[in-house]
Simulated scan of single mutants.
Amino acid sequence: MDFLEKIETDLSSAFIQNGYIIQPCENQSALERIRNKTVDLATNFLGVPYPTDPGVFLDEIVSVLPLTKLNFFRLHIISGLMAESWFREAYFSCARSLVETIVGNELVMQRNIGFSIQIPGDNSSLLPLHSDSWGSECSPFEVVLWIPLVDCYRTKSMFILPPDADAKWREKVQDFAGGGTESLYQAVEPELKWLEVPYGKVVLFTPTVMHGNRINQESTTRWSMNIRFKGLFTPYSDKRLGEYFAPIAVRAASTIGMKFTMPGGFDD
């Protein structure tokens, strides 16, 4: 039996078939708040005035940011965002109904944030072809909510290997042990899907399939964030509850059940 509504069934089928869903942000004001705070932190670090057009400022950050300061700059922004009490709830609100449809409504959320600033031509911020679930750290029950702060396309975005192709190549991964990740990338490259995600849209994808990025060959800088979600009661790997993940939605029946203890005397 399947009691999901049609829209839930359609979204679920698309996610299973493609490995991802791209849709408009569900809370545009929250996204604007996140981007504005990011720009505020950036201008504070660089000692420059707040721009009239935040999107252009982020796109063209290379004009005011020395590459030698990129990592310190990125860490400054991450710590600044995480210090805001509203940030995590705002991030979740950008795709709350989508996450609940795909994952469930009792959820844990990654405690920290993944944050990428990929300057054109820079090879220091690459995430080579990989599948998170191949190792012991990532549970296959996780999903990643990926949100760009600028228009992302072609090499300014990320790629994903669709599930059918991923299953095919996964069986052949051992054949590329000698050539490394790059040789595997060259083999699967014709089947990769580069995600086109303009600012104002979000991506939810499964990290069980191969994905990653390449050197940004476009003329402007990529800014994107990612945070993982999973069902509260789904299996955990090395990234454990309370350490890597924190609960954000626990229902009353679960709270009662987890606290319940049987009275004595029933084993007599």
Rank of each mutant, 00 (worst) to 15 (best):
E5G: 05
P24N: 05
I34P: 08
T38Q: 04
V39L: 09
N44E: 14
F45W: 10
D53H: 09
P54N: 01
G55F: 00
V56D: 00
E60I: 04
I61P: 02
V64D: 01
L67H: 15
K69L: 10
I78E: 08
I78V: 13
S79R: 09
A83P: 01
E89G: 03
R96S: 13
S97F: 01
V99A: 04
E100W: 00
E100T: 02
G104Q: 00
M109I: 03
Q110S: 06
Q110Y: 09
I113H: 01
Q118N: 13
D122L: 02
S124V: 05
L129C: 14
H130L: 10
E137Q: 06
F141E: 12
W146T: 10
W146I: 14
L149Q: 09
D151H: 11
D151C: 10
R154N: 15
K156C: 03
S157K: 06
P163I: 08
D164H: 14
K168E: 07
V173P: 04
G180N: 00
S183G: 06
L184C: 07
V188M: 12
E189V: 04
E189Q: 10
E191G: 07
L192H: 08
L192E: 11
K193A: 10
W194E: 08
P198G: 08
Y199D: 04
V203R: 01
T206S: 14
P207G: 03
P207K: 02
T208A: 04
V209P: 02
V209A: 13
N213S: 14
R214H: 02
N216S: 10
M225D: 00
M225Q: 00
F229T: 12
F233S: 13
T234R: 08
Y236V: 04
S237H: 12
D238V: 10
K239F: 15
Y244T: 15
I248P: 07
V250H: 11
A253I: 07
I256V: 15
G257V: 09
G257S: 05
T261D: 14
M262D: 01
